[in-house]
Design a protein around this nucleic acid. Sequence first.
DNA 1: ATGGCGCTTAATAAGCGA
Length: 255
Amino acid sequence: MKLATWNVNSLKVRLPHALDWLEANQPDVLCLQETKQEDSKFPLSELQQAGYQAVFSGQRTYNGVAIISKAVLEDVMCGIPDFPDEQRRVIAATLNGVRVVCIYAPNGQSVGSEKYQYKLSWYLALRKWLKNELVCYPRLALLGDFNIAPEDRDVHDPKAWEGNVLVSEPERAEFRELEQLGLRDSFRLFEQPEKSYSWWDYRMMAFRRNMGLRIDHILLSEVLIPVCTDCTIDRAPRKLERPSDHTPVVANIVI
DNA sequence: ATGGCGCTTAATAAGCGA
């Protein structure tokens, strides 16, 4: 079973890239973030023609998440229970007995800002919910744009980024709290190239200079860790014309 | 170096992302 996540930064603009990528890679499930589309405008028929079904929770301009799958999607949930939020950041569904949770974590803007506080409270609510979710669904995968670079090796210039949003200690502590639930960063289960990142700023030729961060992740629950065979970052879509600033992360599990 | 680029809504600029 091939699982993937990709922040497309507007599904309207990136639909051709997404369809090409699905055709070339044939994942069983692809989690999307920053679709930036109201549900009425979601390109369901185009995806169905490509052999996929989808569930989605979007809004105009900002945020928006979707799960695209070859298999039937069941028990669909949007948002975090008991965490009222206008921002469409979470969607979950079960397919082939695996609970797939797709997240677009808040950016946080700057350390100490209101948006940063929102980010930390959002992570607290997420982890409290997932603790229960893992009881109901021991086979669980948490995929998405976490907007956290977990360690210094996930940052192109740790000194320049030190203390900044996306790498600050309270954010990294939240990432470790997720690991305390038994979730593991599938990327680090395997030997990886140095300087592996999933996002590069559009400016300053950051991609060409590999000035990136690894902030998109696939976390797997304890029972899925032993059956994970690989996790890779696919840099190819970042080289296309008008790319998303993020690139897909892919993991395979044998179930 | 507080800019840079790209997307969105809106409207001929401004907010936001990371």
